[in-house]
Design a protein around this nucleic acid. Sequence first.
DNA 1: CTCGGAAATC
DNA 2: GATTTCCGAG
Length: 144
Amino acid sequence: MKAGCSIVEKPEGGGGYQFPDWAYKAESSPGSRQIQLWHFILELLQKEEFRHVIAWQQGEYGEFVIKDPDEVARLWGRRKCKPQMNYDKLSRALRYYYNKRILHKTKGKRFTYKFNFSKLVMPNYPFINIRSSGKTPACGAEWF
DNA sequence: CTCGGAAATC
DNA sequence: GATTTCCGAG
């Protein structure tokens, strides 16, 4: 009997949510879909307990920095029961998100990625205001 | 470190 | 279809 994969959820609120729960909402579909990587990343970013391993980058909305790639990979591997998970493998899954338009990469900075909320928010909350700047990036435009 | 193809797995 | 694993190139 194997039971080393117990998902322990923390019903604690960090205190200041950056995102509504639509982002972290687990798959309640009857199809038993496993959690996607970007859901998991958002879940970690939501909690202050993990801010030593991953945290939002101040200045850009949706940008985050992975401080401890090994720790993030370890937690991700625990969730997926993949003890041999590494940042190399995790980042590869992240790289596949580039084509899915879910994630972007901030070049120049190490371990720095950015969520593409133009694609994430629209199908859920098309009325959320990303940035109150006079600049409105079109679909496909750079977010720099 | 970062990118991306390919095979394999679920 | 999404993710994992392996690996060569930059």
